[in-house]
Design a protein around this nucleic acid. Structure first.
Length: 576
RNA sequence: CGGGGCGUAGCGCAGUUUGGUAGCGCGCACGGUUCGGGACCGUGAGGUCGGAGGUUCAAAUCCUCUCGCCCCGACCA
């Protein structure tokens, strides 16, 4: 492509609405334009990237035995009504009517339509397993679109649906997709983790999220640097202190009482008592109200309670802090003065609590705290892993420090079971002629979201730094200076690269070198070949990787071969 | 949906408090000088000030209503 002919509008200043790096850069570098909240136009460069991502996804899906189809985006309401999602999806569903007043919607996800197709066409176990997918726009009227292409109201998604005759088959389909996803995310050049998440209301079934690690993602994660452990912070746990850390009984001091007027928070306690007291040597006591009882929850003073884990431990959907009145009734003191010592009700303590020696805790009396409180001697509790994990905590699987990340959910796979097939009557006849509902799985990848995720992960102060496999072009050829010989040499190079199957962008604009370099960096093409009259006199061009500081001189006659090797090594695909 | 903020030239902004002929930078067009990291000089085009209604001799500015967008939160296959 010749830059002079390309529809490639770069801008110096970002629209003020854009805050995320990917949003700013994709707009500035001429990949996309916004037309409304969560609605984007894909310009030529952006579409090239989407195609590259799609091609990789398609190749790996096909290799895993899935078959591509294309379903309508505009769908009659009947299907969602069959599974109660017409109401269940709520305001997120884009609803519309045709001229006769018949209700339709734009597909936010396509379980029903695929299930319908299969129930009409699949009659026998001999036709299973079957895995169908599509790459298509999805529509969701999000309460709040944000982050540019990261959460739009229209977005490009690959969704696949597997149908199996048995549980084992469904698991095999799921595992095959999981393996394919690993290959896809690796090939895309993304740093990612497979993460267990709270399955929430959908509940119970096997699922995994493929999270692209970034500083700006919507989900908080922890991931181990040393092993494969990674989890959504909502459900993550840390390795509990070992028995070798157990307190020496000889060091336990007798319990004392201190007057702590108007001292409520842990920070205030630490400051008021002073000395060598730290928050880690206090106990934080929180009171949660269940239907028929109150539960005292104790964590180390510098920790936060993970309410998702607490709710799981208690076997309830969600937990709510008790009101001041409830707390006073149960403890004779208000929050800020409550503690486990002397409380006869249910106490749940985090696994770290037994290792806090001679702790300060609320005395269940206004304006008083106990000192030298020790678990076991002074109170007992159910022990459970209920604290919020933070970066630096020990990995539950290998003990090495966990790192805190934010992640962008780029893919999600799960086994659906028979929810849809049962409700919609998608059955097949098994070996003995009995009708059985197909066991389903579904597997999504946010194509346009991954494009933005890649930018979140691969950019610097000057612009985007595309991984080679999804870069819109492999190489940008930048002749500098007004010399005719340079321009001619650039044409030769461009032709040679194109013939070698390398996707090259020739910056043949009549612009100053600084402008060309700034645009090249902004656009983020992985390799740049600079031609100038100095190098030309020696028969060389400069080759510089987007993320490299130094350029290297390459003889012109070696250029095509050198670039070919480099493109292929970096995961690019030659167009031959 | 709750809280906050913003709509003025293609983009980024000033002007609104205190009503009085709509400005700046970038970009764009033309001419000239420049040419290895977003050059410089000159000339010029471009805006119903988000929309509707009202107050006033006069509204970007004051009042009412409305639409849109962004951020935080709630929500989220």
């Amino acid at each position: 492509m010749r830059y002079s002919k390309a529809f490639l509008p770069t801008v110096k200043e970002a629209p003020k609405d854009a805050t995320m790096p990917s949003h700013v850069l994709l707009l500035r570098a001429g990949y996309a334009r916004m037309v409304g909240a969560g609605l984007y136009e894909m310009l030529p460069l952006g579409l090239r990237v989407l195609h590259k991502v799609s091609d990789i996804v398609r190749a790996e899906m096909d290799a895993a035995g899935a078959q591509e189809v294309l379903m309508p985006a505009l769908l009659p309401a009947d299907y969602f009504k069959e599974t109660d999602r017409w109401d269940g999806f709520g305001d997120t569903l884009f609803r519309l009517q045709d001229r006769r007043g018949q209700p339709y919607h734009l597909g936010p996800t396509h379980e029903e339509i695929f299930t319908d197709l299969v129930r009409r066409e699949v009659k026998s176990y001999r036709q299973l397993p079957l895995n169908l997918y599509q790459i298509q726009a999805k529509y969701r009227d999000e309460p709040r679109p944000r982050g540019g292409l990261l959460r739009g109201r229209e977005f490009l998604m690959k969704d696949a649906y597997s149908f199996d005759a048995s549980e084992e088959g469904a698991l095999a389909s799921y595992e095959s997709m999981r393996d394919a996803y690993h290959r896809i995310f690796s090939r895309l050049g993304l740093t990612y983790r497979v993460v267990r998440a709270d399955s929430g209301a959908m509940g119970g079934s096997t699922s995994a999220e493929f999270q692209v690690l970034t500083q700006t993602g919507e989900d908080a994660l922890v991931a181990c640097a040393a092993c494969e452990y990674a989890a959504n912070a909502e459900i993550a746990e840390a390795r509990a202190p070992g028995s070798s850390d157990a307190p020496d009984p000889a060091t336990l001091e007798p319990v004392g009482t201190v007057a702590t007027p108007n001292v409520k928070t842990i920070d205030e306690v630490v400051e008021f008592i002073g000395g060598d007291l730290t928050a880690a040597r206090t106990l934080k006591s929180l009171v949660y109200a269940l239907d028929d009882e109150v539960v005292l929850v104790v964590v180390r003073g510098d920790r936060a309670v993970n309410e998702t884990r607490l709710a799981r431990h208690l076997g309830v959907p969600a937990v709510v802090l008790a009101s001041d009145a409830t707390v006073e009734r149960a403890f004779g003191a208000l929050p800020g003065s409550v503690g486990p010592v002397g409380f006869s009700g249910r106490i749940v303590a985090d696994l770290e609590v037994p290792f806090v020696v001679n702790a300060v805790a609320g005395a269940n009396e206004a304006d008083h705290h106990y000192t030298n409180v020790n678990y076991g001697r002074d109170f007992q509790a159910e022990l459970a892993s209920i604290r919020q994990v933070v970066g630096g905590d020990a990995c539950p699987s290998c003990g090495e420090p966990l790192e805190a990340y934010r992640g962008i959910e780029g893919g999600h796979i799960f086994i659906l079971g028979t929810r849809y097939s049962q409700q919609m009557g998608a059955t097949f006849l098994d070996e003995v002629g009995e009708a059985q509902p197909a066991i389903m799985g579904c597997y999504g990848i946010g194509i346009s979201r991954l494009m933005a995720s890649a930018v979140e992960q691969h950019h610097d102060a000057d612009g985007i730094c595309w991984p080679m496999p999804i870069a819109p072009y492999h190489v940008i050829v930048s002749p500098v200076g007004k010399d005719d010989a340079v321009a001619a040499a650039a044409e030769d190079v461009y032709r040679a690269l194109t013939e070698a199957g390398i996707e090259a962008l020739l910056d043949d604009r009549d612009e100053r070198p600084g402008v060309k370099f700034k645009d090249a960096d902004l656009i983020g093409i992985p390799l740049r070949v600079t031609l100038g009259k100095r190098g030309l006199a020696e028969g060389t061009a400069e080759l510089k990787g987007r993320t490299e500081a130094q350029a290297q001189a390459v003889p012109l006659e070696d250029l095509a071969a050198t670039l070919r090797d480099r493109v292929v090594t970096d995961g690019g695909r030659l167009r031959l």
